[in-house]
Simulated assay, not measured.
Amino acid sequence: MSVAHTVVTVVAAVMAGFSAYSVFARAEWAVKPMADYGVPASWTPWLGTAKAAGAVGLLVGLAVPAVGVAAAIGLVLYFAGAVITVVRARWFSHVPFPLVYAAPVVAALVLS
């Protein structure tokens, strides 16, 4: 395992964890856009849990690589779904936001 992989994985986990915390804390800047995109409010705990599980999985993956790969794939699929949701809602200027969170996850997956 390289230093680059470790650093990128920790950064990806921190970013996904922060995103999950923002959903759980119902931060307006995180929850309001989801409502604007048409995501039901009842989904927010599940979406936050998915991101939190992915963040923990990335960190566990530093010791158990298969778990890290599975977590990274799950987060990549999550953020791909976020991009699709934003595009379907026609908020094209918001597409970069999920991509910012997805980029370090993809990098961690590539470096694993």
Rank of each mutant, 00 (worst) to 15 (best):
P40S: 09
S42N: 03
V67Q: 02
A30W: 04
M34C: 07
Y21H: 14
A52L: 12
Y78V: 13
F97Q: 07
A89L: 13
A53C: 15
D36W: 00
S22T: 14
A50V: 10
V39M: 15
L59V: 02
G81D: 11
R88V: 12
L111I: 08
T9C: 06
G68P: 02
I84R: 05
A55N: 10
M1H: 12
V3N: 06
W29N: 08
P98M: 02
P40A: 12
G38F: 10
M1Q: 09
Y78M: 06
R90H: 12
V105Q: 12
Y101L: 15
V83M: 02
A108N: 02
E28P: 13
S112G: 04
A53Y: 06
K32H: 00
L47K: 06
A70E: 03
I84M: 09
A63E: 03
V105N: 04
V14Q: 12
A102S: 04
V7K: 10
A30V: 06
V56T: 00
E28A: 13
T49L: 15
A12Y: 07
A82L: 10
G38M: 05
V7Q: 01
A63F: 01
K51M: 13
L109C: 09
A108C: 07
A27H: 07
V64H: 04
S22W: 02
R88P: 15
Y101N: 08
A108E: 06
H5M: 07
S22L: 11
P40H: 00
Y21W: 06
F79Q: 09
V105G: 03
W43R: 04
A103S: 12
V69I: 05
L75A: 07
V86Q: 04
V69R: 05
V86C: 08
A27Y: 01
G17S: 15
M15T: 14
G81W: 11
L111Y: 09
V39Q: 13
L62S: 05
F92S: 13
Y101M: 15
V87I: 03
A53V: 14
A16G: 08
V87A: 15
V39T: 09
V7G: 10
